[in-house]
């Protein structure tokens, strides 16, 4: 799991080059310190943001791989070792409602497991902060709803609340499935690289149109009105029930700390 740990450190300390380009072009309020931050974090291996997130893992496991222990345990140990060894933040509490007692080493990660053919393991992960997570939304749209309604929900959500979640934002959209699958797909969409489009032309156009519309909101870097409002929009769709049109929206901050690690035989 060394490669996964290294990728976790990288995600926390090095800004994705395609996002760095946007940061370098930015000239508005706090521009200097944001650029200085990117440099200091990279050079001194300090976290880009003090909220070093909850680690969310989307694992695809080949059917002929035999693991020595449950993947959840392996990933939890890797997260604990990495967050224990680096000056990151332990941001988890043991129980959410009554006591909220802090946990050490930022465990547990959220782990989702999918199966595929062959002998491989792919771990896509997000280092997801709480501020952006609080913008996750699920809408049970009516099956007759059109694409405009989907777009309006996204625009409304970002327009009303985008300034709180460290814009420019990355938007993941899950459409179809049932509620939990839509949200899972919305999160998965946040792991996709900047500038890539859905292979289905209708969804690709939806992504492009939404990105254009979001950027007319002029929320900008830090919510202070200068620069882009959104840097990426990705969609993932699934078949659904005749009576439903599930829509889930997940939001990530400008850093979009993520990674992909692949093990192949």
């Amino acid at each position: 799991m060394t490669r996964f740990s290294e990728a976790l450190v990288r995600a926390n300390t090095e800004l994705d080059p395609s996002i760095r380009e946007h940061l370098e072009r930015y000239q508005g309020p706090f521009a200097d310190i944001l650029k200085e931050n990117e440099r200091i974090a990279r050079e001194k291996r300090l976290p880009l943001c003090q909220d070093t997130g909850l680690v969310e893992c989307f694992c695809t496991l080949g059917q002929s791989v035999a693991l020595e222990e449950p993947l959840q345990r392996t990933l939890e140990a890797a997260v604990a070792n990495t967050y224990g060894a680096f000056p990151f933040r332990d941001s988890t509490v043991a129980e959410p409602l009554f006591r909220r007692t802090p946990l050490k080493d930022n465990v547990p990660p959220v782990v989702h497991l999918f199966q595929t053919e062959g002998k491989m393991l792919e771990i896509r992960f997000l280092v997801k902060g709480g501020g952006s997570e609080n913008l996750s939304r699920y809408y049970a749209l009516e099956p007759s709803a059109g694409v405009e309604e989907v777009e309006n929900k996204v625009i409304e959500l970002v327009g009303d609340n985008g300034a709180m979640s460290c814009p420019p934002l990355h938007i993941g959209i899950g459409i179809g499935g049932f509620s939990e699958k839509a949200m899972l797909n919305a999160k998965l969409a946040l792991t996709y690289p900047l500038g890539t489009r859905h292979k289905h032309p209708d969804y690709a156009q939806l992504e492009e149109r939404l990105l254009r519309k979001l950027n007319t909101l002029t929320i900008g870097f830090q919510g202070l009105g200068v620069g882009p409002t959104a840097l990426s929009v990705h969609t993932v769709y699934e078949p659904t029930h005749i009576a439903t049109l599930p829509l889930a929206i997940a939001v990530d901050c400008y850093l979009n700390r993520k990674g992909v690690v692949r093990f192949e035989d």
Binding site: T13, F30, I33, L34, E36, N37, I40, A41, K44, L46, P47, L48, C49, Q50, G131, C166, Q222, C253, Y254, L255
Partner: peptide, 8 residues
């Protein structure tokens, strides 16, 4: 500034 923790 948010998301600027290393510099702050």
């Amino acid at each position: 500034p948010s998301g600027a923790a290393a510099a702050l």
